[in-house]
Design a protein around this nucleic acid. Structure first.
Lengths: 350, 350
DNA sequence: GCCCGGCTCTGCATCGATGCATCGTTGAAC
DNA sequence: GTTCAACGATGCATCGATGCAGAGCCGGGC
């Protein structure tokens, strides 16, 4: 048995296709009698409107794509949740796609057929995509694109981010204020797609500069990715440092920090007494870790809110108001990994 | 400027619409000359096929919906990743939707218009949906639906799960084998939508029965949800138990266990010396926790694999072969929280 | 009694692409 | 030289719904 169409309902109710459409959509005035007949027919046949057809006619799908590198990275899944929730309030469905950081996959989603017709717009957290890729897009003819994160500052697109340099400086200064002198930085990525990491490294340097302290380049550790395993590995290497281990570590995200802490604890190093650790992102796992994790907390709800609002605005008006840069707030949350001992369990620290 | 259509390309290339379609899709043989002309026109105009129109004609969208309760729960995001990856290999795009456990939202996705026309099928991990809701669906006329998890065993749909009763029994027996005598169970949900939890409670009971031990009902703790906060709270309550704290805890998922461990450590209770803890799900956070978490590890890759394969099969053939039940393997992974001290950092335990 | 305005309701065209039948041309086979 | 198959290319109908213009009918006003 096939799905009933508007036409089937019309035949059964003895009215025109158009009238059924009107009833279903609550459009024009319809006499009570016909309305009742149509509604009965709809119920009997179990009619459901075909959204694909509707989309074809209207040119809009009511779907937004959210493209993130990895779904099982808490920062992204928490952010995704916020975006989905916010977009739903505006009547949009969000399709989440993960790229695994593959350039081809990101490119396909931004340039490809899907975006052109399946989604009304895309919110992208680029990882591998280069400036060149984005420049190749023709903004005047493409669907709206909102970028999340720091990259591609001078691009032709709206973008939402926090001030990574400043936030990294705040995190580093916190460690300096604790009297730590040999502060390692874990997570630098001195290559094309590591722009966010590079900004954090800059903040790390600025903090030292502001305090008139010299940066020990050998304490800046590169990691291929931002996972727990990378943090654990980097920390193991730091413990072997020729001048001895550092007395503090600024990790460029919470996963790196949690991996690093794991390594420290298994080696009998005390956190924060021997080595203090700061993370970045404020994921839930950090709040419940022992020791709980001091971290930079970007306001994910605000990021999601700004990104979705921006997208809605783009979708609404025809006026091309030029690319907009939006900054979301963040805060340093001090927990046990830098000295605060045993707060209320799971305390948010806010 | 508007998006070019097949027709625009045809005009520019001086051929028929149909020929352009053939070139774009690589269908029928086309002379090299016309092919070149068409390809040039496509490139010049920047033509992209309209997927909505294509979908309308073909009746398929190439999209599957994966519906989970909460995206930022690691178990689901890890599972989602596996499903997305697997489905992509079959040429399907997966749309992930979270329901926040709201019955209405789940119902809408299963019964509503979107499924009827926007997705070729749905893989659902039901939380709030009742048997009655599912029974109301007409399986013969709806799109394929594959259920994940334990619920609704006798439904009319394919379903993929692990043997929760047996797995819970294995986890509990592991604690009994360690010589623990007062084993708490954290996460029971004795209400309609808590079927998975109830199965785990059954396994917990069976383990005691098999060992000829009596269950202390006051050690079975109910939690509203399965988050870290719930585990922390439940553990705090258990520490106040009139007969004193238990000497082991079986938590119904890893988040509960991590929350519980956090509470224990902040109260100066040693894990596993004073209280051993077992979790369920094997999320990455448990591997890097200190102490690392002993847990039941359902094979998520297999679950995703089975679910997607089943879906593909349903989409392929017309034959209604009746609902299929598929069981995915699991294993107990012993780590520090039940006694294994300092394995290789991040060791998977496999 | 006639005309006009408003309210219902309808048919046709359209969104952009594909399935199918067909038509003209060419080359090979007899 | 004729027949026929294969090939290349095309037009029309169609997928399911909505926009638009207008038809039919009713009642009210003069």
């Amino acid at each position: 048995m096939t799905t009933p169409r508007l036409r089937d309902v019309a035949e059964r109710a003895g009215v025109s296709i158009r009238t059924v459409s009107n009833v279903v959509n609550g459009y024009a005035p319809v006499s009570d009698e016909k309305r009742a007949r149509v509604e009965a027919a709809v119920a009997e046949l179990g009619y459901r409107p075909n959204l694909t057809a509707r989309n074809l006619k209207s040119g809009r799908t009511g779907m937004l794509a959210l493209v993130v590198p990895e779904l099982d990275v808490p920062y992204f899944s928490e952010l995704a949740r916020a975006v989905v929730t916010k977009a739903r309030q505006h009547g949009y469905t969000v399709v989440i796609d993960q790229t695994d950081g593959e350039p081809d996959r990101e490119r396909e989603l931004i340039m490809g057929d899907s975006l052109a017709t399946m989604f009304d717009g895309v919110i992208l957290s680029p990882l591998a995509l280069s400036q060149a890729d984005l420049a190749q897009r023709d903004p005047t003819r493409s669907r709206p694109l909102v970028l999340l994160g720091e990259r591609i500052a001078e691009s032709a697109y709206d973008h939402v981010a926090i001030d990574n340099v400043e936030a990294a400086r705040v995190a580093t200064e916190h460690l300096l204020d604790l009297g730590r002198t040999r502060i390692a930085a874990v997570g630098d990525q001195p290559w094309e797609t590591g722009e966010t990491a590079q900004l954090r490294t800059r903040g790390y340097r600025e903090a030292h500069q502001a305090r008139k302290r010299k940066v020990d380049e050998s304490l800046i550790v590169t990691t291929r990715r931002f996972h727990r395993a990378n943090g654990a590995e980097a920390m193991a290497a730091l413990l072997q440092h020729p001048k001895g281990p550092p007395d503090a570590v600024f990790c460029y995200n919470d996963l790196l920090a949690l991996g690093a802490i794991r390594t420290l604890l298994t080696h009998g190093v005390r956190v924060p007494e021997d080595i203090a650790v700061v993370g970045f992102d404020d994921i839930e796992a950090g709040r419940y870790n022992t020791p709980s994790l001091t971290t930079i907390s970007p306001n994910k709800a605000t990021i999601a809110w700004l990104a979705v609002d921006r997208m809605i605005a783009r979708l609404g008006k025809r006026s091309d108001s030029g690319p907009v840069e939006l900054w979301a707030p963040y805060e340093l949350i001090v927990r046990e990994s830098t000295g605060l001992i045993h707060p209320a369990v799971g305390g948010s620290g806010t």
